[in-house]
């Protein structure tokens, strides 16, 4: 099977994740959509590794995972902090910047 199909899948998943980040208001869901986008990118990396015949892409995907883990840890901590002060996990409620 042509590995390009994985790339198409990756592009579609990435776009879906992007829509999710924009349209969902629950901060946790927004985060999950970001994870979806990162995973889509990982899929592309792994596919590239497969196509080029070396493991560089896989290593890159590995690093992406670690960074994603960091991002989740800090991001969720931020969500908890915001929730603690605002009693809400909606990203629209934290819009003080406009005022």
């Amino acid at each position: 099977m042509n590995p390009t199909n994985y790339l198409y899948l990756s592009a579609i998943l990435f776009s879906i994740g992007a829509v999710g980040v924009v349209v969902r208001r629950n901060a946790i869901v927004v985060f999950m959509c970001i994870e979806l986008m990162l995973n889509a990118a990982n899929l592309a990396f792994v596919t590239f590794a497969n196509m080029t015949g070396n493991l560089q892409g896989q290593v890159m995907a590995f690093f992406t995972m670690v960074v994603a883990a960091c991002e989740v840890v800090v991001g969720l901590a931020i969500i908890v902090t915001i929730y603690r002060s605002r009693r809400s996990a909606s990203v629209d409620d934290a819009s003080l910047l406009s005022r």
Binding site: V30, D92, L97, S98
Partner: peptide
Amino acid sequence: LQTGYVRNYALLILIGA
């Protein structure tokens, strides 16, 4: 443009991309 809504900013990033 600065609505303060993070989703608006995300949309702008998406449009930019």
